[in-house]
Design a protein around this nucleic acid. Structure first.
Length: 416
RNA sequence: GGAGAGGUGGCCGAGUGGCCGAAGGCGCUCGCCUGCUAAGCGAGUAGGGGGUGUUGAGCCCCCUCGAGGGUUCAAAUCCCUCCCUCUCCGCCA
């Protein structure tokens, strides 16, 4: 949610941002609605004030004067109730639209509507020296560490079994990532994956991306598509102390995604599945330094990918391809020899005050409370990272060489 | 799943219909005092919204005592629904 004072003072900023995102927005209707609801509120509150004054005088009155006062106060109470109902109606009408507006995009976010419009920021590693060109599915099947067919029988398409050394490697990655990030001030956390609707509204996934989320209707709970949801909501309705910032967390959780509308896309292997585990960084920070914090998260992601020896490039994601809550987003795209192209394996977003406003997360300053900025970034998306490791570290004989840094955690040097 | 208790400001804790957004204490901030520290004295210390405006100075008003409804001229106080916490029993990874 963006700041309502912007609508009143500089609507052209909202208009410009929406135009860059390529979405239509009727600001005049919104402005008109806003003015009407405020007028309605002012007049309702005035009735309320008069009613209270009258009511307070009653305790000091007696006899017929008291009867008259009660009658008058009763009338005022009825008027107020009606006026308040109208105000609430207008508020709701306004809010229903306002909550669908995406965050303002950052000046420095790349222009354009699609993935192709993203701007490459940097490259690392050499993708041109493959030791083999099988993709992760073939390698995984040959080595007996991946099973998709049986997963399909059990759960349907877009599920997989990680077996043996590959299952071990997941936990090696988790331990490795925690060890890398904790010294940087990230507190490890295992968050809930079932959350209430307010956490999803608060993080901006609802109402817009409702169809991507698994719902457990019987209990009014939802399976998170990323632990960003439960990490952001960790401090909802709180006022943090200024000294505590930045407050950094690294969460490990399973993620559930319906992948609605992705039919036929990335159907091989475990590249795009309904369920995967992910280690996610999350930061609550001072709004003045959120750009630096964003760079910081990206740097941590690069540390991890580099440590694993996976060639990659960093892209500044085009505004049209941004989530509604993000002002700016960097993706790391790893080289996948099996696909012979770069594919997204991390994503870090600066959501500025968009989620903080919805979740009511503020911090204390000497002159009042201000909204924090929130940022999220993938540390390790296990499934895709395993795929990237397998493909980039495959040997000519079909075995996988485990990256040096993971060996102490995994307890083996290769998968064969 | 069954039975009971309870949710008040940063924290503890009073308050069962009428100037209560709320006693008292702790904590914190500022000032005074004390040759350090401790103690003491005084003042301040919730959040959101609306109006006005020299636009975050001030002033005025409204809302919020877990959330939402209701009763009443008037609700932290009475009623209903929901959420959460705790205790006991049952069940269970």
């Amino acid at each position: 949610m963006i700041d309502i004072s912007l609508l009143r003072e500089s609507p052209e900023i909202i208009a410009a941002s929406c135009e860059r995102r390529g979405i239509d927005i009727d600001l005049e209707t919104l402005t008109d609605l806003d003015q009407r609801r405020r007028r309605a509120r002012t007049s309702a509150e005035d009735m309320r004030r008069r009613q209270k004054e009258m009511g307070n005088s009653i305790s000091r009155l007696e006899g017929s004067a008291r009867e008259d006062a009660i009658a008058e106060a009763s009338q005022l109470a009825d008027d107020y109730k009606a006026a308040l109902a109208e105000t609430d109606r207008l508020d709701q009408k306004f809010q229903d639209i306002w909550i669908t507006l995406p965050n303002l995009v950052a000046e420095s976010a790349a222009d354009g509507m699609t993935e192709e419009d993203s701007i490459e920021v940097s490259r690392w590693g050499d993708p041109s020296a493959p030791k083999g060109t099988k993709d992760h599915l073939d390698l995984g099947l040959d080595l007996g560490v991946l099973d998709i067919e049986r997963a399909a029988r059990v759960s349907g398409t877009r599920f997989g079994y990680l077996l043996g050394d590959l299952a071990r490697l997941e936990f090696a990655l988790v331990q490795f990532a925690f060890d890398q990030l904790e010294p940087h001030g990230f507190k490890p956390v295992v968050p809930p994956v079932l959350v209430r609707e307010e956490a999803l509204i608060g993080t901006g996934f609802f109402p817009s991306d409702r169809q991507q989320v698994y719902a457990v209707e019987k209990d009014d709970l939802y399976l998170v598509g990323t632990s960003e949801v439960s990490l952001a909501a960790l401090h909802m309705n709180e006022i943090l102390s200024g000294e505590a910032l930045p407050l950094r967390y690294v969460g490990f959780s399973t993620c559930f995604r319906r992948e609605a509308g992705a039919h036929g896309k990335d159907t091989r292997g475990i590249f795009r599945v309904h369920q995967f585990d992910k280690i996610e960084m999350f930061s609550f920070c001072n709004p003045d330094i959120s750009e630096e914090e964003h760079d910081f998260l990206l740097a941590r992601e690069e540390d991890l990918v580099q440590a694993l020896g996976i060639p990659y490039r960093v892209v500044n994601v085009a505004v049209g391809d941004l989530g509604g809550s993000a002002a700016k987003k960097f993706d790391i795209e790893a080289w996948f020899p099996g696909q012979e192209r770069y594919r997204e394996i991390t994503s870090t977003s600066n959501t500025t005050d968009f989620q903080a406003r919805r979740l009511k997360i503020r911090y204390r300053t000497d002159d009042g409370n201000r909204l924090v900025h929130t940022l999220n970034g993938t540390a390790v998306a296990i499934g895709r990272w395993l795929a990237a490791i397998i493909e980039n570290h495959q040997q000519r004989d079909g075995t996988i060489s485990v990256p040096e840094v993971l060996r102490p955690y995994a307890g083996f040097d290769s998968i064969s």
